[in-house]
Write a protein that binds this DNA or RNA. Structure first.
Lengths: 319, 319
DNA sequence: ATAAATGTTGAGTATTTGCTCACACACGGG
DNA sequence: CCCGTGTGTGAGCAAATACTCAACATTTAT
């Protein structure tokens, strides 16, 4: 007489059945056990087996599901600690929509902590949009320090410096940098950085617990140039030297390596805090920034990224 | 300035995120809580929301998954309490493969119970195959009662009567019916049923806790005819009267209604136990039996069904 | 403007689940 | 035939999860 089919396939069948009863039918493992005439533990093992054997597939039917999938791939691909991928709005070419809100949420998450932290903030349109999304809070125990100078070339306050807005909204102690973004000479930068107050601010920035920076591109519409921090000639020189992006004014090439000389000799911003000791989050989206983001990630300059779906896809596709 | 997007979509987003972290990334709810900066309870609610909102879809990548899906549809469609759908072997046209094993499993499940039960058993090829799959056990506390006579027209033991095989294998107390399947006349049936021993057996069958019956077709190869219980002429008459299937010899039409007169006046089998008080499981598969199964289910003659994938599909497709 | 209705939250608690361990049983080699 | 070896099993326990409740916030209706 035909013997029972071999037990291994039987076991997988049982596992499938148990998994189905558990995940699809919503049975408890004890119910499954009694239905299958086995002990609860065995039911548990079967359910667990159905998962480990890959019989059970869960998927998330929500736009955000895709985002989180991309996020987790970026995370492992670039050894990141924090990745937020927000849904892309196909009908918008804004470079802040979504990421601004997400960044605000992430900033608030840090500011909600009861223990005092030091948060460093870069500059740029994206960060400004993010800070505008912040909910007013009361965080006198936190310190917010700017990584970049807040003086525009014409002597006015740099429009995209966000430290004041931020400090206002969240009532934290703020540490702006009363400096130009790019000094007129390397010598001037040394002098400025030698001032005790600036030194203290720079030191504070260096020990930030968390840092948020934007990434600028060095294309024809480079923000550094559009905002008047660098001249047409300086932009061209940077491009010729291979610069494809900048963070807080520090230009880097396609490998994420800082350009030697040129404007980098005069950038008055604090150096980007080390990702070794803290969370350094880059916020950037859009095709124009793609090569810059790629370079930053490859070079491991940051360990956090907030971007959108489309950009995330681009990053992963570019190998 | 644009306000935060309305909270309902935000909430669903969070739910999706939580659901993703929970089901896809395998985080614990406490981890999710800390990552999202909310309380553990809120994380639990979000996860639960993601499920109840249908954001999370689980599916089973195993042949049996389809079976259980079919089973659950049959269950609700025909108000059944037990449905087993086994995978179909496309390369086999056996009418017992799979269902035999499944039936054996189900029978064993009942026999494993420590409290004494009464199990009624019909007859037929399918049940015979099922009983042959039974694992030897020791169940002296249970009673197994046959629903049909075990005497073939030529006076020999009916081949497909399974009560003896079964009792042997599981060591249960057995109650066969020393009767022909179909008496020679209505009057003879009355006399036979009036015998005290038969009456007791019939009474026992009527109070069975669980019943397993096969379904026979009334086509050209009707088992009743092939096995010699009815003549060619009787088969034709039944067909003309609209019979399309039989259980334990009781013929019924496409609505599941018993044929009046003809062989049904002489069927010596016990009446099929009522599904009101017990589990009555029909075991049947194959296209030939499809109309019969359909009729039985529509008429609610049984509250259990063991069949295969293909047949289950057929049943659901036929309206 | 007030009250009712609705929804959200955290705390506490009961239930459910995952894990470890010791043991039993079958299989295959010496 | 006996003895590893390895697989499966159940008990017990720790962790994780689901549920209930009361308080509070927010919206809606009068």
């Amino acid at each position: 007489m035909a013997q029972r089919m071999d037990s291994s396939s039987n076991r997988l069948d049982d596992a499938a059945r148990a998994g189905w009863l558990y995940y699809v039918a919503g049975n408890t493992q004890e119910e499954i056990a009694s239905k299958l005439g086995i002990s609860r533990q065995s039911a548990q093992r079967l359910v667990s087996l159905s998962v480990s054997e890959g019989l059970i597939k869960v998927r998330l039917d929500h736009p955000i599901g895709r985002c989180m999938d991309l996020a987790s791939r970026l995370k492992s691909r670039f050894a990141l600690d924090l990745v937020e991928v927000v849904p892309s709005d196909p009908s918008s070419d804004s470079t802040t929509i979504g990421v601004a809100e997400a960044t605000a949420t992430e900033i608030e998450r840090w500011l909600k902590r009861p223990d005092p932290i030091v948060m460093a903030i870069g500059t740029g349109r994206t960060l400004k949009a993010a800070v505008e999304q912040l909910t007013p809070m009361d965080c006198p125990h936190h310190k917010v320090v700017s990584l970049t100078g807040n003086i525009a070339p014409d002597g006015s306050a740099a429009y995209y410096n966000v430290i004041f807005n931020m400090a206002d909204t969240v009532k934290a102690r703020s540490f702006p940098m009363p400096l130009p973004v790019i000094a007129s000479s390397a010598r001037e930068r040394e002098l400025l950085h030698a001032q005790p107050m600036i030194r203290r601010t720079l030191a504070l920035a260096a020990q930030a617990d968390v840092t948020f920076v934007g990434i600028g591109d060095i294309g024809p519409d480079a923000p550094l140039h559009v905002d008047g921090f660098i001249t047409d000639a300086e932009l061209k020189e940077l491009q010729k030297a291979g610069a494809i992006g900048e963070i807080c004014g520090w230009s880097f090439d396609a490998d994420g390596k800082l350009i030697e000389g040129l404007t980098n000799d005069r950038v008055a911003s604090a150096t980007i805090p080390s990702r070794e000791h803290a969370l350094v989050v880059a916020i950037a989206m859009g095709n124009r920034k793609l090569p810059g983001i790629k370079a930053v990630l490859n070079r491991r300059l940051v360990n956090g990224l907030i971007t959108d779906e489309r950009t995330a896809e681009g990053l992963l596709k570019l190998l």
